[in-house]
Structure formats: structure tokens, C-alpha cells
Computed example of a mutant assay.
Amino acid sequence: MSLPMIWFVFTPGEKIILRLCSAEAETVELLSKVLNGNKLASEALAKVVHQDVSFTDPALDSIRVDIPQDILGIWVDPIDSTYQYIKGSADIKPNQGIFSCGLQCVTILIGVYDIQTGTPLMGVVNQPFVSQDPNTLRWKGQCYWGLSYMETNIHSLQLHIPERNGTETSSQLTENTSSEAEAHGFSAVISTSEKETIKAALFRVCGGSVFRAAGAGYKSLCVVQGLVDIYIFSEDTTFKWDSCAAHAILRSMGGGMVDLKECLERNPEKGLNLPQLVYHVPNEGASGVDQWANKGGLIAYRSRRQLEMFLSLLIQNLVPADTNT
């Protein structure tokens, strides 16, 4: 049975409440009002939303996890990178697998968290526009998921990620990971609006391996996929619905997503825990959507060991190069 949904659609001079009806024909009738009587399009859309969808995955079918439903909260972003979706660019070429803009940067984000602790538990990132058939012009997508609850950590990429990008808890990081990381100087993905001080430090740490991309969900996905080591953003313009899904997947891989500002102020010699983002507490003194902003910025990562090395280098290089002591 399809889940009911309500869409609010505005047309000139009229407000229409469009809902998924119990009968497909009724949904067609409502859609026709929005689509100016285009019955073929209305029927095609209604057929899609009324069909039963079943997802199976051998990895998930092999485990059983009982999570109390009354502790779960959900953050959903139905279209992340909305501007890229509206623009609809399909001819963008990737740089080492990373798209700076275009439909490939559009994601659908579903993150599930513990309402008592704010810890992300489950995440789904759907990338609907991965590749386009040159003949039919139809798009193929890809869905990524992760589950991290108590002793269970499982994700959809664990059979496809090289050992260097694995988790420390599963002993997939080899002893020479540290030297390799230092040798290649790390790679990072950033927003086009990133602060100049951060960009300058990143170029000193990462050299030419700093990539710009649209969409918080997509940039997080670049870390999940192993295309880069780090996604860093210093502004407060991402929100809980932007980060929860990928954060859950990264936790299942042995990584996470932390508050950048707190990381920069933290003293690693005191052994303080990394300030993971949480999803259940609004920002004090804020109102509206700002209650749920990631106020201190963020860093997404796959390996704590790599993150510690990266932070050490970043902090060193945030100091102006011409400063004399």
C-alpha cells in the first residue's frame, strides 16, 4: 500500500490541495487540474505514485535489529540542491568523479535519529540523477544507506569501498594509512561560498585536491563514496535535515560529522571527545529554521584517525603564513 501524502500546489487564482487518493483515477483527476488538463501526464504520474515499491538488500535481509520506534525522530530533505534541480543542467563534466554543479548534485535525504541523545542511527541518501542514457535521455539513480545502532554497523557500500577508506573498528585501516594520508595531503570538498581563510588553509593542506561542489547532501555523499577524505563547511547555513542522513551512514562506516568551530577550539592533548553533531536540541536563542542550523559549521569524515591528522594540519595552516612569533 502506498503511503498517503499531501502536496500544496499553487496555480494562478486558485489554491489546490493535491493528495494521494485511495483510487488512482481520483489522483489523475486532481493532477489534471495542476497540469492544465494534460491527461497523459496525469495518468503517468498517478501510476508511479500508486505503484507498490519494494526494496530488498541481501545485507539488510541477513540481520535483525530491534530499535524501539518511540525513540526515533526523522529529518527529511525532499530536494537538496534545489537550484541545481530547477536549473536542470545535464552536461556538466566531473573532476575526478566530483560534479561541481548540475543534476548530479541533487539528493533526497532521510535521516533517523535518537530523540533522547540526538545520535543519528539510520540514513538514506538517494541520488536520482547519476547517469543519463544518451538514447532515451532517461536517468538512472543510486541509493545509499547506513545503519548504526548499538553493536550493529552496516552500510550499502561496504563491499565497494577500498580498504583505505574503511572503518577503524573493523580493522580495515592498514598500518600505513597515516603515512599515505600525509603523503597525498588529504582531499576535501567545499562550497563555492566558503570563507577565504578556510580555502587558503585547505589549499596549503590539500594542494590541488580541493574540489568545489553544490549541495550539502552531495558533498557529504562524496565523503561517503570515498571520492574525498573530508567535507568541510565553516558557515551556519546547513541544517539538521542537510546532515543527518549522511551522518548516520558515516557513523556506520566508522566516521562521523562534527562541529567545526568546536573542533578548532578543542585541545586534543586533553583527549576531549570529538563534538559530533546532534539532532534533537534546537539552538539556544534562535527562532524559526535557525533553531536547527549547524551553527558551528561542520566536517564530515570517514576515519577518526584521518580527521585528527587533518585538524592538526588545518589548525597549523589557519595561522597566517607571514605571522612572526
Rank of each mutant, 00 (worst) to 15 (best):
T174R: 08
T136V: 01
A188V: 10
K199Y: 11
F186P: 07
T192N: 09
N165L: 10
T197D: 10
K140A: 10
S187G: 08
S191A: 07
G185I: 02
A201Y: 05
G207Q: 07
I115E: 06
P162C: 03
L202T: 03
S148C: 14
S148K: 11
A200Q: 13
W145H: 01
F186I: 08
G208H: 07
P162W: 01
F186H: 12
T169N: 07
G185Q: 14
S178N: 08
E180L: 12
M150V: 12
G141S: 02
G208Q: 09
H184A: 01
T192D: 06
G146L: 02
N126R: 15
D114K: 05
I115Q: 11
K195Q: 10
K140L: 06
W145D: 01
Q172V: 00
S209E: 14
L159P: 00
V130D: 13
I115M: 09
A181Y: 15
Q116A: 14
R164Q: 12
A201I: 07
Q132I: 13
F186N: 12
E151A: 10
E163W: 05
P120G: 10
N153S: 13
R164S: 12
D114A: 13
A188K: 04
E168C: 05
Q142T: 04
T169E: 07
Y144E: 05
S171D: 04
R164V: 09
V124C: 12
S191N: 01
K199R: 15
D114Q: 08
P120R: 10
P128A: 12
Q132M: 15
E168R: 05
E182P: 00
E196R: 11
V130S: 14
K140G: 14
R138M: 09
S170T: 00
V189R: 03
L147F: 06
Y144M: 07
V210Q: 13
A181R: 14
S191M: 05
C143F: 03
T136N: 10
G118D: 13
D133L: 02
T167P: 08
I115S: 07
L157V: 05
F203I: 14
H184K: 11
S193M: 05
H160Q: 07
Y149P: 03
E194I: 15
V124K: 15
G118H: 08
W139G: 04
S179A: 09
I161R: 04
A181N: 10
N126P: 05
T136D: 11
N135K: 15
N135H: 11
H184W: 12
Q132V: 07
